[in-house]
Amino acid sequence: MSVDDARLVKRCQRDDPEAIRELVERFQGEVLGLCVRLVGDRHEAEDVAQEVFLRIFRSLHRWDSTRPLRPWIMAIAVNRCRTFLAQRRKRPETLEDLSGVAVRPSSTGDRELLQEIRLALEDVRPEYRIAFVLFHEQGRPYEFIAEALRRPVGTIKTWLHRCRQAVLERLRQRGMISEVGHELP
């Protein structure tokens, strides 16, 4: 735990506007970055990130000051993104938006492979995508993801496995991996 973080949080709880600004500025890049990555649309991500900060300040009193602040904040961001994605998934226009993605031409370069993986992630269930991004892109351990998504580690492992299978299947359909390529177990 950073003494600096704890002190900053204490000042925020006393409604010090400068402290509030400092906390927002300290974490805004990471929070917004994660929101953009998970939500996709920049404008929507900014709205979600704003809500993340509101939630952070509303629950600052619940932060255990013996534990690091950053993962706690990122867990709130993950949770908020998850709720947003679950709600957006229910809106029919979103499904149409995502279906437009599937008609892009395939290519074989490394950059294109990365692009295809990211597009494939758009089509999987939000919780699969979040688990994938947190694990493979952010390098978070299973325990962190489990805590952030309030699910057992076993569930996270299952989600991740299914997500990889879905991505692999999609790459195969798009011709990025030949039919010869083997399946995951």
Binding site: Q28, G29, E30, L32, G33, L34, V36, R37, A45, E46, A49, D110, L113, L114, I117, V133, H136, E137, Q138, G139, R164, V167, L168, L171, I177, S178, V180, G181, H182, L184
Partner: peptide
């Protein structure tokens, strides 16, 4: 091919911090 795909996955870059 499976390994090439796995290599790509394990080397995915972290989301870049976005400057608002």
């Amino acid at each position: 091919e499976l390994l090439a795909w796995a290599d790509r996955i394990v080397s995915l870059p972290p989301p870049e911090p976005t400057t608002p």
